[in-house]
Amino acid sequence: MNKDIATPVRTQEILKKYGFSFKKSLGQNFIIDPNILRNIVAQAQLTSESGAIEVGPGIGALTEHLARAAKKVVAFEIDQRLLPVLADTLSAYDNVTIEHGDVLEADVATVIKREMPGIEDIMVVANLPYYVTTPILLKLLHADLPIRGYVVMMQKEVADRITAQPGTKAYGSLSIAIQYYVTAEVAMIVPKTVFMPQPNVESAVIRLIKHDVPPVKVIDESFFFAVARMSFAQRRKTILNNLQSGLPNGKAKKDQILTALEAAGIDPKRRGETLSIQEFGQLADYLHPYFV
Rank of each mutant, 00 (worst) to 15 (best):
Q155L: 04
V55H: 11
P57W: 14
V190T: 13
F76A: 04
D285E: 01
E262P: 00
G281S: 01
L90D: 07
K210A: 09
L287Q: 10
I14H: 03
Q282I: 11
L261Y: 08
I112K: 14
D160V: 05
S222E: 09
V194W: 01
N249V: 04
A284P: 12
P135K: 12
I14C: 04
A126I: 06
V194I: 13
V194Q: 09
I209Q: 06
D88Y: 06
V41E: 05
T193A: 13
E115R: 14
P199G: 12
V103A: 15
Q256I: 05
Q198C: 10
F195L: 00
S173C: 14
I112F: 11
G149T: 09
A42Y: 01
N241V: 07
A170V: 00
A69Q: 02
G60A: 08
T193M: 02
L128C: 09
H65W: 10
F291G: 04
I98G: 03
S245D: 15
D94N: 12
E115L: 05
A177F: 03
M188R: 10
A143W: 00
K16L: 12
P215E: 00
D107Y: 00
I32R: 11
Q155K: 04
I206F: 03
L26I: 00
P197I: 09
A75R: 12
I98T: 10
Q165N: 12
I98S: 09
R207C: 07
L83R: 10
V182C: 14
E54Y: 04
H65E: 13
K24Q: 12
E13C: 14
P214G: 02
D267Q: 07
T47I: 02
L137P: 08
D255F: 02
P197G: 13
I5N: 11
H288P: 01
S25Q: 12
I266G: 02
